[in-house]
Nucleic acid binder design. Structure first.
Lengths: 158, 158
DNA sequence: CACTTTCCTTGACTCGTTCAAGAGAAGCAG
DNA sequence: CTGCTTCTCTTGAACGAGTCAAGGAAAGTG
């Protein structure tokens, strides 16, 4: 295992110093939590942060996630039917594969060429700045387990 | 103006009869409401339905939207930061352009070829059944008005 | 028309998220 | 190092889209 807790903290602190944000232990812990739990939801981040800082308020985590997303240190994704999830892989506009059964999210790189689907057939006069692609399906585990879609999944899916 | 209220009702009723669902005036009204308000949210559907059926409960509308989506008469979309929205254009897996400023949603047809982006660079073993593409940007009106993104928009956007 | 099954009404409730006020700490100037 | 200013965190209440549950109403069937 390379990458100690301390190195993570240093890395997170350095990232924070490059913004105009203050370096607080809460924010460092939130950045580390998201690094350790890819595509984590807020609840997971809160639990993870509390392992090192038992007294953090949920509001501090919400605030940190918002602020860090605003300055570009985190990216927020919200697949249909899911709560907000955060990731530290930013700046490459990669896309996501979401399991309809267990909500597992996996990163996928751009599909065709380097700017896939960035040109809709007509843009209706819009100034487009991002194309977000979400692939829906079943992850290997759920496929193997023969998982069936629940009514709710079907509803929120299509 | 072609397409009277009565014709719409007949059309909606016919669509319902092709499923195993009962034809109720609430469901007919919901179908008509979604036809009349493309990409309408639930609140809009409720208001629209109450123009002809003042006494419908919000629960009846929620139930109808769910059921109609399940049987494939409606499609539900939920862009990040937006509530659920419904549309009657189904079966062609078209995509959406969303204005970051006013939340206007516009349909766009498939982009490259007929099955755009349906093949991620690696599928991580997933069985993929749908690729959902959302284009984010600014609609013509907001661009002309020089609308700036609010902090909140920026947050939920990237 | 009577009966069965599905659907709608009513009203309470959940859960993720946000709001607001005041206490606390980060960073800077001296 | 010390005090000051400003930003950040804690506390606790509130919000809103959506859901749950029980009983009454209406659609479809024979």
């Amino acid at each position: 295992m390379n990458g100690t807790k301390h190195e993570h903290d240093e890395d997170a602190a350095a990232a924070l110093r490059q913004t105009s944000l203050r370096v607080t232990k809460q924010r460092v812990a939130v950045l580390d939590a998201v690094r350790d739990h890819p595509h984590a939801d807020t609840e997971t981040v809160i639990r993870s942060v509390r392992e090192s800082l038992p007294a953090v308020s949920h509001q501090a985590v919400y605030d940190s996630l918002h602020t860090l997303t605003e300055v570009g240190l985190l990216r927020c994704i919200k697949p249909s039917g899911s709560v907000a999830r955060y990731e530290r892989r930013i700046g490459d506009n990669h896309h996501h594969l979401v399991c309809r059964s267990c909500s597992l999210i996996v990163d996928v790189d751009c599909t065709i060429g380097q700017a896939p689907c960035l040109t809709p057939s007509h843009d209706a006069g819009f100034v487009i700045d991002q194309a977000e692609v979400t692939f829906w399906g079943m992850c290997p585990d759920c496929t193997a387990a023969g998982a069936q879609l629940t009514g709710d999944d079907q509803f929120s899916a299509v």
